[in-house]
Every structure is written in C-alpha cells, then in structure tokens.
Nucleic acid binder design. Structure first.
Lengths: 174, 174
DNA sequence: CGGCTGCTCGCGGTTTTCGGACATGGACAG
DNA sequence: CTGTCCATGTCCGAAAACCGCGAGCAGCCG
C-alpha cells in the first residue's frame, strides 16, 4: 500500500516489564511504551499516521534497543543522544523538548515545567501534554512530579515512575 | 523533510478555463481541478497528506496532461485508462468508482447513482460525495444530474458542467 | 499559635460531542 | 401542483468536558 509508513518494532525485557520500541527507517524513535499499554500506544500512532502503517519486527533496530538496555543496566546517559520523531501540537513539542533538558537524577514540578516553556499558568495542560508523550523513558516524563513532592500520576503506573526515579538516583518524597 | 509527499503539478488551458493537474511519482492522478478553485483543492489535498507535500512543476507528467488535452480536442476516451489515487471514506470510494463506469455521453441521476452503489436511500449523501471528488473530469462527476433532468450543482460552476456534457454529446434538459 | 490535612476552585490545551449545512428525491397532505 | 418532511454521509465550527496541577482557605490538633 503506497504511502503507508514502514516501521520497525522490537521488544525488550526490563526489571519493570516488557518495553515496546518503534522506530522509523531513518533510525528515529517513534514510540516507546510498556507492553501492557500497547493498545493505547497504537491508538496514538494511528491518530498521526493517517495512511496507516506496517510494523516489521526487527532485532535492535538502529541500535535503539541496545541503548535502552544500557540505560536499564545503569548507563543512564545512553538514551540521551537518541533522536525522536513525533507528531503533536506546538505546545506538546515545547513540553517534550523541555523534558529532555532535565538531567537524570533530577525531578521538577509541573509548575516549573510550565514556567520553563513560557506558559506559567498552563500547569494542568502541561500535565496533559506529559501524558500524551509517545516516547516513554527517552523523553523522561517521569521526571516531573507534584509541587509537594508527590508522584501524582504516570501513564505506565505509579510504581514504574517510582522505580525509574530511584534507578536514576533521585531522592523524592513519598 | 522526510515523509512529505513529492508531487508533480502541471497546468493546461481548456476552452472553459485553466486546469491544474497533480500526479504522484507513480504516475497516478491525485487531483484535477480548475485554477480558480485551486485553494479548495489544495485544502483537500492537505487534509489527506498529514505530513505535508511538495509540489514540483513538471511539463506533462507521465503523459497525463497530453491525455486531458486529447479529451478536450474530442478524443473522449483518452481519459478512461488513467489511473487515480485518492483518499476518502469507503462510501466516497464506492461513489467515485461507480462514476467512472458511466460512459461519455450518458448522464444518470443522483438517485440512480445511489442505487448502483447499493445505498438507494443515501441520495443526498451521494451528492456530497460527488462534490468531494478530487479529480474533476477524469472521475466524471459532471455526468450526474437531477432526477428531473436539471443540472443541479457543480463544484466548478454550472456553466462548465453544461459545457462538458455538451462536449460529450449528451442531450440534457434545461 | 504553627503545622498539617483536605476541599474547592481556577487555570488552559486537547479531545469529544453536537448541531447544522449540503450538488437530492420520494411520499404525503392540502 | 405546491409545500413539508425525512433519510443519509461527511465536514466544520462552537461549546463543553476532561485532566498526570496547584494555590488558597477553613478546620483540626497539639
């Protein structure tokens, strides 16, 4: 079918569940999410690929799986150079770009994130944009927590957010 | 920009105004419309090419312009073998496919068209699908008229519909 | 008082929902 | 013969709902 995106998909195990990795032929990440939320992820993808897409299983596409495995083994910086390609509104892009500037081991509040993208009052909207992030872990939406230090929410489940922050050596309240 | 469609565009004069012809690299027609409705056409294209598209001027792409010129010179069958590639809903595709089965020189009613695609009661909807046709002339939406023989409507203007039907040797009321 | 808890309300981008318009025509009432 | 009503698919605009928040305030307890 002409015009339909040809995507590469791989799956890797992690201490907190299996991860699905989707890349395009240019080597850019299109989506990363937990297997048990695969439906939601595919729905997100489908919304942006109007012409449909084909998923081709491929071991370690463009070295992306290797990088993610390294991250889980303790090489936190392994995911930093990875390139991503996502659709989304200008507001969402601003939020996601800002997320990648948060270093591992740090966590900021939703209010702080809103401030950094120049929309200090769009606090709740920032939370929404966070939840719409198609690329878990690499775009570290888990590094944003409540102003009072509580973990608030996470698409993959709070326990994973807690694990990831601990893995990155971040002391958080609660 | 990766993922954006590369399209070829040409323009030809006709007795009833300039025509814009848009083809893809595979040689299939993507759109045909009158210059004075170009805005509407581009909007239609944009709706279906989410990732954007680039238009490259090209004389007579894949022989399509030549075929259309031949049609206007009297070789009515010249446009019949041309291949098209369009987006659209299943209902629209059914309508457009059925349109191409109407021979030059014939005109049927919206009700008859609705009957032929198996939705005898979706008469008005058929008119809408007709109006959403991106490929004027080649997909001959002008060959559909009111049950009482009146020309009803046409995206490019009624006068063009009348001219086209006369050009094809079709005697219509009004 | 000082500190903590819990509730309420406003914030703003995105998604969903809803109502209308339209390239018609047949049935039915007056 | 004329007017009215309705079926039917799709798009568009407006309006409302939805939330991965956070500040402000009342109430409660030592």
């Amino acid at each position: 079918m002409p015009g339909s995106e040809q995507l590469l998909v791989d799956r890797i195990p992690t201490p907190i569940g299996e991860l699905v990795i989707i890349a395009d032929q240019a080597g850019k990440l299109r989506a990363v999410d937990w297997t048990d939320h695969e439906g939601r992820m595919l729905a997100l993808l489908a919304r942006h690929c109007r012409h449909g897409f084909d998923l081709h299983p491929r071991r370690d596409p463009h070295g992306l799986s290797r990088a993610l495995k390294a991250y889980f083994k303790g090489d936190l910086a392994a995911i930093e150079p990875l390139e991503t390609a996502t659709d989304g509104t200008p507001f969402q892009h601003a939020a996601w770009r800002e997320l990648r500037r948060i270093p591992a081991g740090r966590a900021i509040s939703y209010a702080e994130l809103a401030r950094r993208i120049g929309r200090p009052r769009a606090v709740r909207a920032t939370g929404l944009a966070n939840g719409a992030n198609p690329i878990s872990i690499v775009v570290p939406c888990h590094r944003v927590i409540g102003s009072d230090g509580s973990l608030t929410g996470y698409g993959g489940g709070i326990h994973r957010k807690r694990w990831l922050l601990a893995h990155e050596g971040c002391e958080t309240a609660e």
